[in-house]
Amino acid sequence: MSSGYGTYLLDELGSLGQVSLRRMFGGAGLFLDGLMIGILDEDVLYLKVDARNRPDFEAAGSEPFTYARMGQEVALSFWRLPDEIIEDGEELRAWALKSRAAAIATGKAKAPRPKAAAKKRATRRRH
C-alpha cells in the first residue's frame, strides 16, 4: 500500500467519522467508526457489499476481492471500487456510507462495549 493512497482515503473520508487503516494480511482494513468497510490491497480499494449496494458494483463492472485458500478461490463480500469513483470525493463518500450500512446490516458490526461494563467484568474476574 502506498502511503499517498492511504493518506488520500483518510483525508477524503475523514468528514464521515473516525476513519483509519489497519495493516492486515499483507494489505489494510479500512475502518469507519470502528466498522470494517473496506480492504486496501496493492492500492486497490474494495468496499463492503450487501444486497442493497451490490447492484451498483455489478453495474460498474466491478468484481469481488478473492484469495486462494487450500487450492480454492474464495470471494469475500468486498468488491473493487470503480476507478472513476475514487477520484470523485463526493461519490467516494457516498459509496463508503453505503458500505458502512452493509457492514451493519450483515451483522459483522459489533457495538463497542461500554467502558463501565468492561470495567465491571474485569473487577468480577479478580475475585
Rank of each mutant, 00 (worst) to 15 (best):
G6P: 00
G6D: 00
T7S: 15
T7D: 14
T7Q: 15
T7V: 09
T7Y: 13
T7M: 10
Y8Q: 14
Y8F: 15
L9Q: 14
L9V: 14
L9R: 13
L10Q: 14
L10E: 14
L10V: 12
D11Q: 15
D11G: 12
E12I: 01
E12Q: 15
E12G: 00
E12W: 00
E12D: 01
L13H: 09
L13K: 05
L13Q: 03
L13F: 13
L13Y: 09
G14F: 12
G14Q: 04
G14H: 07
G14I: 02
S15T: 07
S15Q: 02
S15A: 13
L16G: 05
L16W: 06
G17Y: 10
G17L: 09
G17K: 07
G17R: 05
G17P: 03
G17H: 12
Q18T: 13
Q18I: 10
Q18S: 15
V19H: 11
V19D: 08
V19Y: 13
V19S: 06
V19F: 13
V19P: 08
S20N: 12
S20W: 06
S20E: 15
S20R: 15
S20L: 10
L21C: 08
L21Q: 10
L21T: 08
L21N: 06
L21E: 10
L21H: 10
L21S: 10
R22E: 15
R22I: 08
R22M: 10
R23G: 12
R23H: 09
R23M: 09
R23S: 12
R23N: 08
M24G: 00
M24I: 01
M24F: 01
F25Y: 02
F25P: 00
G26Y: 11
G26D: 11
G26L: 10
G26E: 10
G26V: 09
G27L: 08
G27W: 04
G27T: 09
G27F: 05
A28R: 02
A28Q: 13
G29N: 07
G29Y: 02
G29D: 04
G29P: 00
G29F: 06
L30P: 01
L30K: 00
F31L: 15
F31C: 04
L32I: 03
L32A: 02
L32P: 02
L32C: 01
D33H: 07
D33Q: 05
D33I: 03
D33L: 04
G34P: 05
G34Y: 06
G34F: 07
G34Q: 04
L35A: 15
L35F: 06
M36P: 05
M36I: 12
M36E: 13
I37P: 08
G38N: 11
I39G: 03
I39Q: 08
I39H: 07
L40T: 03
L40H: 04
L40Q: 07
L40V: 15
